[in-house]
Design a protein around this nucleic acid. Structure first.
Lengths: 207, 207
DNA sequence: CTCCTGGAGTTATCAACGATAACCTAACCC
DNA sequence: GGGTTAGGTTATCGTTGATAACTCCAGGAG
C-alpha cells in the first residue's frame, strides 16, 4: 500500500521506531479513535509487517505509552508557554488552567491516554509517567508556589495540595467535556473560565 | 463449567437477560478489569453459549450500557441517601460530594463506565445516559438550588452552573485518583474533604 | 574476494475476541 | 398430537495482539 520501504542499514534500526511513533500519533489524531490504532494498521501505514513492530516495542501498551510520553512533552511546553506570557502569578495560574483545558479539548485522545488511562496500564508504566508527566506537574507546583510566595494566594496554603486541587478542577471539567459529549453543556469556553475563576476565588488572599 | 442451565420456559426469556447483567456486573467488580468482561466469559459463567447473549443485547456495548444504567440507579440512591442525613443545605452538599467520591473510589470500574466512557459510546447511547444519569444530575441541581434559596450560597449564582462546577471538581479528584494509581497521592480522604471544602468556600455567601 | 555473523524484517501461525447465519428443540396452544 | 415459535446451539467469519521460526543482506575479518 504505502511505498515499499528500503531496508534500514545496520544501526539504523531506531529509524523505524520513530516512524512507528509518528504513524501511531498521526493515526490517533486523524481517526480520533483509539481502536483504529491497531498494530496492523500502524504496520501497514509504515510499510512493514506487524511483527516488526515488536522489534521496537514490547507490546501495544508500551507503544501507546511512548506516544503518550511525546504528548506529555508537548503538553508541558504548551502550559509553560502560556504562563510565561505574564508576570502576575495569579494571571499565570489562570492562563495555565485555560491552556490545560484547551489542550485537552483540542487533543482529546492524547489527553485520554495521559490522564484517563487504566490503572493497570498506569501501574505497569509508572516510571514513564513519573519521567514525562512529572516535569509538567512540578512546573505546576512551582507556579502555585510563586503565587503563594508573592502573597497573591493565601499564605497558609500548601503548594502541593493547591496544585493537586487546581489540577483536579481543570481535569474535572476537561475530562467531563471530553467523555460526556451528549450532555447538554453550556458554552465550553465559559465553563472553563468559570471553573478557573471559581478555584482562584477560593484560593486568593483576602484583600 | 457452571451447572447446566435448564432451558427457560416460554415467556421467561427475560430471566436470562437479568442473569447476564448480574454476571457482567459481578465479573466487572471481581476482576476489576473491563477487558475481562468478554461476551464469551459472560456466556460461560451464565452457562450458555455466546450467541445467546445477542438474543437479549444488540451488541457488547449495549450490554455494558445496561450494566451502567443499573450503576447509575445505585449511584443516585447513594447520593440521595447521603444528603438526606442533614437539614443544613451546605452540609448536604458536602455530604453529597464526599459520597460521590467514595462511590467512585469503591466502584472504580462502574465509575469509569458512567463518567469516563468514550465519546462515541456515549453518543450512541445518549438516550440511556439521559434517562439514568439525568435523574442523578437533576437531584444534584436541586440540592444546589436549595442551598441558594436558603441564602447559604451566594444569591447571584446559577444553580445549573454551580452544579456543573461542583460536579467537575469532585469528578476531577475522583477520576484522577482512579486513573493515576501510581501518582504519589497524599491521603485520599483528606484530599476529597479538602476539595469539597475548597469549592464550598468559593460558593458560600459572605457572612 | 570470501566467509560468516548478527541486525532487520518476513512468513506462518496461535488463541481470543465480537459478531452472524443457519440450524435445532423443547414448550405451549389448539 | 402436530404445528409454531421462543429459546437456545453449532459452525464459522473477520479481526486483533502476539510469538516462533525463518530469510535476507550489510559489513567487518581474514
Amino acid at each position: 500500500m504505502t511505498a515499499a520501504r528500503t531496508r534500514a542499514r545496520r544501526g539504523e534500526g531506531e529509524r523505524l521506531r520513530d516512524e512507528i511513533l509518528d504513524v501511531a500519533e498521526e493515526l490517533l489524531v486523524s481517526t480520533g479513535d483509539e481502536n483504529a490504532v491497531s498494530i496492523r494498521a500502524i504496520a501497514q501505514r509504515v510499510g512493514v509487517t506487524p511483527p516488526s513492530i515488536y522489534l521496537h516495542f514490547a507490546d501495544k501498551e508500551s507503544l501507546l505509552w511512548a506516544v503518550c510520553e511525546r504528548q506529555f512533552a508537548k503538553f508541558d511546553a504548551v502550559l509553560e508557554a502560556a504562563s510565561a506570557t505574564t508576570d502576575d502569578p495569579i494571571e499565570a495560574l489562570r492562563r495555565r488552567g485555560e491552556a490545560y483545558a484547551r489542550f485537552g479539548l483540542e487533543h482529546p485522545d492524547a489527553y485520554r491516554m495521559m490522564f484517563m488511562a487504566r490503572p493497570t496500564v498506569a501501574d505497569r508504566h509508572a516510571a514513564t509517567i513519573d519521567r514525562s508527566g512529572g516535569s509538567a506537574f512540578t512546573h505546576h507546583v512551582e507556579a502555585v508556589q510563586r503565587a503563594i510566595d508573592t502573597g497573591a494566594l493565601r499564605p497558609d496554603l500548601d503548594a502541593l495540595q493547591v496544585a493537586i486541587f487546581t489540577w483536579s478542577g481543570m481535569h474535572g471539567i476537561t475530562s467531563l467535556l471530553i467523555s460526556l459529549a451528549s450532555f447538554p453543556w453550556p458554552d465550553r469556553e465559559q465553563l472553563v473560565r468559570g471553573m478557573c475563576a471559581l478555584q482562584l476565588r477560593a484560593l486568593k488572599a483576602e484583600p
